[in-house]
């Protein structure tokens, strides 16, 4: 058993298989990345790409999942939707941090500066800030904080394409050379495997984090039941 104390849902064979596959994936990806051809101009530095881009993708995925959960919470009163929104926002902040660390490293090696107002990096930064603001609203927003945060998630999701377009045009449409479609054939397989494995990691972390939240909600329910029983007897 991977998790001796796991709940019924997490101890299911499928979930454990997922975790196992993710672990195997993390053994596999470095080999694939190491064997991928070197990029002509940037050389070894370009390998950060296999880490950076999946993180950026998961930052965006987290934002949309957070908005989806918030939608279910706001309009259908779904508590699990709210938990999903919180957990994915947290993961978004985490993977966003990876983007914000690896982005400047790459920029320094590729262009000699730590930060360029490149459209993807800037959009990611704004997305990351929105998710951090989501966390602030939840923590310090008082009684209306949860609902406010949910509304922020909706605005953030609506903002994603607008941010991308506006930042892109703001920087004056400069050519993007490092797009996925222009990847050398030898780089594609490691990249996509890395993308899938990172997504699997995200899924595993989300499931684990959701489990903590579910457990907490259950604990509150039980505490209330105990209070109720005491209330009745006194």
């Amino acid at each position: 058993m991977l998790f001796p104390m796991s709940s019924a849902r997490l101890s299911s064979a499928r979930f454990q298989a997922g975790i196992a596959a993710t672990l195997v994936g993390f053994l596999l990806v470095p080999l694939l990345v190491a064997n991928a051809p070197l990029e002509k101009t940037m050389g070894i530095v370009q390998k950060i790409f296999y880490f950076h881009v999946p993180c950026a993708w998961l930052l965006m995925l987290s934002t949309f999942v957070c908005a989806g959960g918030s939608l279910a919470y706001l309009f259908a009163g779904s508590e699990s939707g709210d938990r999903l929104a919180l957990c994915s926002a947290e993961l978004g902040v985490l993977f966003g941090l990876c983007v914000m660390v690896t982005g400047p490293l790459w920029a320094r090696a590729a262009w000699g500066v730590f930060w360029t107002w490149d459209v993807r990096l800037t959009s990611s930064l704004l997305l990351w800030l929105m998710l951090i603001a989501y966390g602030l609203a939840r923590r310090y927003g008082g009684t209306g904080g949860r609902r406010l945060a949910a509304a922020m998630a909706l605005f953030a999701a609506a903002d994603v394409p607008l941010v991308y377009v506006s930042v892109n045009l703001w920087r004056g449409l400069h050519p993007n050379t490092k797009t996925v479609s222009s990847l050398a054939p030898g780089m594609r397989l490691p990249f996509f495997v890395s993308l899938v494995i990172f997504s699997a990691l995200w899924g595993v972390l989300l499931a684990l984090r959701m489990r903590v939240e579910r457990g907490q909600a259950r604990l509150v329910e039980l505490a209330i039941e105990i209070e109720d029983a005491e209330g009745k007897s006194s």
Binding site: G141, G142, G144, G145, L148, A151
Partner: peptide
Amino acid sequence: IFSAALLRARSR
């Protein structure tokens, strides 16, 4: 929206 939701927050 944000101001309305923050009406009850201490550090609004």
